Amino acid sequence: MTQVPLTNLIAGARAGFLVSFPTDTVPALAVVPEKAALIFAAKQRSQDKPLILMAARAEDLWLYVKGSENEYKVWQQLADKYWPGGLTLVLPASQRLPKVMNPIDPTTIGIRVPNSTIAQTILAQTGPLATTSANFSGQPPLQTMAKIENQFPQVLTLSMTEYQGEIPGMGIPSTVAKWTGINWQILRQGAIELDLSSDNQV
């Protein structure tokens, strides 16, 4: 498939097709959560590498995680500080999360709100999407829609003309922080340097 305008990409995503669009870090390969298996197949990705649930607003993501009142406060503190932005929080998953998002360990889920107007515009109309970087597993993230279109001809990619005013992503994946039940563990150091002071612990 060729590059498509924004409205077609949103309609395609809502219909369950694989799509790709820019974010504030690296371009995303995305699909509705129930169809997450399409991403694993397209990327030739191992089942033990979970996907990230991305949304336009933090409020759209809290339904997919579960924790105590205190934990929610800690999570929201960090989200308020770093979202929208290049931080993925790995938290305990709620029953609402389709298991295909994280086939090996469906008890956790990574969530993120990107600091990208284009990505937020899309996600606001599709709802949360299962996402990952656009590349074959084990290879560097592809940085342009043209390269993504070439490597993934079955994916709906966003037309270049749609985001000419958008600042391109920094090309560095998000920082990934996992909640251990009492504090944060950095799984991947990426776009954001986290300040994990005592106020971010239970």
Rank of each mutant, 00 (worst) to 15 (best):
T108V: 08
D105H: 09
L142Q: 06
F152A: 10
L89A: 08
E71Y: 09
P103G: 08
T161N: 15
K66S: 11
Q201K: 13
I111R: 00
A41D: 14
I109H: 00
A177I: 03
G12L: 12
A36S: 08
A11W: 09
A37V: 13
L91P: 00
I39F: 02
R45N: 11
Q185N: 08
G190E: 02
I122K: 01
T157K: 03
L91M: 01
T131P: 04
T117K: 04
P140N: 09
I186R: 09
A191M: 08
A30D: 07
T126H: 07
E71S: 13
T144F: 13
T25L: 11
G181M: 12
S133D: 07
L53I: 03
T126S: 05
Q143C: 10
Q77I: 13
Q76F: 15
D24I: 06
F136L: 12
S94D: 02
K99T: 09
M160T: 13
T2G: 15
G16F: 11
R112M: 03
L97P: 01
S133N: 02
P140G: 15
S137C: 11
I109S: 00
A36R: 01
A93F: 04
I111N: 00
T7C: 14
E59I: 13
Q201W: 15
L142F: 14
L91T: 00
P27L: 14
T107F: 12
K81I: 06
V90D: 00
D80H: 13
P114R: 04
A36D: 02
L78A: 12
T161P: 13
P128Q: 09
T107P: 05
R57V: 10
V202I: 10
G169M: 05
L51P: 00
Q47I: 14
W75C: 07
T132R: 11
Y72H: 15
W75E: 05
G171I: 07
A130F: 05
D60R: 04
G190Q: 06
L187Y: 03
P92I: 13
E166L: 13
Q154Y: 13
V100A: 07
L53D: 04
G110T: 02
W83I: 02
Q201M: 14
P27A: 12
K178M: 10
G16A: 09
